Deep mutational scan, measured.
Amino acid sequence: KEFRPGDKVVLPPYGVGVVAGIAQRSVSGVSRAYYQVDFPGSRSKAYVPVEAPHSVGLRKAL
């Protein structure tokens, strides 16, 4: 896996977040693995496909 729990990442347009782990989510009846990204200071979460994280701009924070 490219990202691990605890990694600081950037996800446009949300900003800097932390990978909380990998979650299985069902979309249109198909279960897939997603990185769960939490954003400190907020209750917001984002789910990014493990198979294509760069397709939505997910990258490691510098």
Results as ranks from 00 to 15, higher is better:
S42M: 10
V9N: 02
K1W: 15
H54A: 10
V48S: 00
S42T: 13
L62E: 13
A20E: 07
D38S: 13
F39Y: 02
G6N: 03
V16E: 10
S42I: 11
V16D: 06
V56N: 10
R43I: 10
V27F: 12
E51C: 07
F3N: 00
R59T: 09
G41C: 15
L58N: 03
R43L: 12
F3D: 00
S28H: 14
V9T: 03
V10C: 12
G6V: 00
Y34R: 00
H54D: 12
D38M: 13
V30N: 05
V18I: 11
A33G: 05
L11F: 07
Y47V: 02
K1H: 15
S28V: 07
P53L: 06
S28D: 14
S44D: 10
P53A: 15
R43Y: 12
G15N: 00
G29D: 03
A46D: 00
Y14S: 00
L11A: 02
L62N: 12
Y47K: 00
V50M: 05
V19L: 08
S55W: 07
A52T: 07
A52R: 07
S31A: 09
F3V: 02
K8A: 09
P53Y: 09
V30I: 10
A46K: 10
R59F: 06
L11Y: 07
Y35G: 00
L62V: 14
S44A: 13
A61K: 07
E51M: 07
R59H: 13
K1G: 13
A61F: 15
Q24G: 04
S42E: 07
A33C: 12
A23W: 13
L58T: 03
L62F: 12
R32D: 02
V9E: 01
K60Q: 08
F39V: 02
S44V: 14
A20F: 10
G17H: 05
V30S: 06
E51L: 07
Y35P: 01
P5L: 13
L62K: 09
D38E: 13
H54F: 09
A46S: 05
G29L: 03
V27Y: 10
R59L: 07
F39S: 02
V30Q: 09
P40A: 10
Y34P: 01
K1S: 13
P49K: 03
V37R: 01
A46W: 08
Y47P: 00
F39M: 03
R43H: 12
Y14T: 01
A23D: 05
D7A: 04
Y35D: 01
S55E: 11
P5E: 09
Q36P: 01
H54S: 09
V19G: 00
V16N: 08
V27A: 06
P40T: 07
L11R: 01
P12W: 14
S28L: 13
K60S: 09
A61R: 07
G15E: 00
G41Q: 11
Y34L: 02
I22R: 02
V9H: 01
V56R: 10
E2C: 14
P40S: 07
G29M: 03
V18P: 01
L11C: 07
V16I: 12
V19I: 15
H54W: 12
V37I: 15
H54P: 04
G29Q: 03
A20G: 06
V30L: 11
A23Y: 14
P53K: 04
S31T: 14
G6W: 02
R59M: 07
L62R: 09
P53W: 15
F39T: 01
G15P: 01
K45E: 05
A61H: 11
V50E: 02
Y34S: 00
V27T: 08
G21T: 06
V16C: 15
P12I: 07
F3P: 02
Y47L: 06
R59P: 03
G15Q: 02
A20Q: 09
P40W: 10
P5M: 12
E51N: 10
I22P: 01
P5D: 04
V19D: 01
E51R: 05
V18G: 01
R4E: 08
P49F: 05
S42R: 12
S44I: 14
E2I: 12
R59A: 05
V48K: 00
S26K: 12
A52I: 06
D7T: 09
A23H: 12
S26I: 14
K1F: 15
V48G: 00
G17D: 00
P13A: 06
V19F: 05
P49Y: 05
A33R: 12
G6H: 02
G6I: 01
H54I: 06
V48L: 04
S26M: 14
E51P: 03
P40F: 13
K8Y: 13
V37C: 04
V50G: 00
A46H: 10
S28F: 11
R59G: 04
L62C: 14
A23N: 05
I22M: 05
V10Q: 05
A52E: 09
V16K: 07
V48H: 15
V30C: 10
P12H: 10
P40E: 09
A61G: 04
P40V: 10
Q36V: 15
S31V: 14
A33P: 08
S28N: 14
E2H: 10
Y47D: 02
H54K: 06
S28E: 13
V9S: 02
K60E: 08
A20P: 00
V48A: 06
A46N: 02
R32I: 08
D7L: 03
Q36R: 11
P49D: 08
S26L: 13
R43S: 12
G17P: 02
A20C: 12
L58P: 03
S26C: 14
V19T: 00
G57N: 04
Y47C: 05
G6P: 02
A61S: 07
G17C: 03
F3I: 05
R32S: 07
L58F: 04
S28C: 15
V48Y: 03
F3G: 01
G57T: 04
S42K: 11
S44H: 14
V18Y: 13
F3A: 00
E51K: 06
R59W: 04
E51D: 14
S28Q: 14
Q24D: 07
I22S: 09
Y47M: 06
Y35M: 02
V48W: 03
G21I: 04
S31Q: 11
G57W: 04
V27H: 09
V56M: 12
L62I: 11
Y35W: 05
G15Y: 03
P12D: 06
S26W: 15
R43K: 12
S42G: 11
K8D: 04
D38N: 13
V56S: 13
G41F: 14
S31D: 05
K1Q: 14
G6K: 02
R25D: 03
Y47T: 01
V19C: 05
V18N: 03
P53E: 04
E2L: 13
A23M: 15
G17N: 00
L58M: 14
R32P: 00
Y47Q: 02
G6A: 05
V18F: 11
R43T: 11
S44K: 14
R4I: 13
P53Q: 06
H54T: 08
A23C: 15
P40D: 08
R59V: 09
P40N: 07
Q36E: 13
K60W: 09
V19K: 00
G21L: 10
S28W: 09
K45F: 12
K8R: 12
V9I: 05
R4L: 11
Y47E: 03
V16W: 12
A61C: 15
Q36L: 12
Q24K: 11
P49A: 07
G15H: 02
L58W: 03
S42Y: 10
F3C: 15
P40K: 08
V48F: 04
P40Y: 13
K60C: 13
L62A: 11
R32F: 06
V37A: 00
V30W: 04
Y34F: 10
P5G: 03
I22V: 07
L58I: 09
Y34Q: 01
Q36Y: 07
G6T: 03
A46G: 04
S55K: 11
K45C: 15
R43N: 14
G15M: 03
P40L: 11
L11P: 04
K8M: 13
S31R: 12
G41H: 13
F3Y: 06
P13G: 15
A46T: 06
Y34K: 01
P12Q: 07
R43F: 13
A61V: 14
Y35K: 00
V30D: 05
P12C: 15
V19M: 04
L58S: 03
A61T: 06
V9Q: 00
R4M: 15
Q24M: 15
A23L: 15
P13L: 08
G29R: 04
G57Y: 04
P12V: 07
P53G: 08
G41M: 10
I22D: 01
Y14G: 00
V27M: 08
Y34G: 00
Q24R: 11
V48Q: 01
R59C: 09
A61W: 15
R43Q: 12
H54L: 08
R4A: 10
H54E: 14
Y47G: 00
F39P: 01
V48E: 00
P13I: 05
Q24P: 03
A20K: 10
P53D: 05
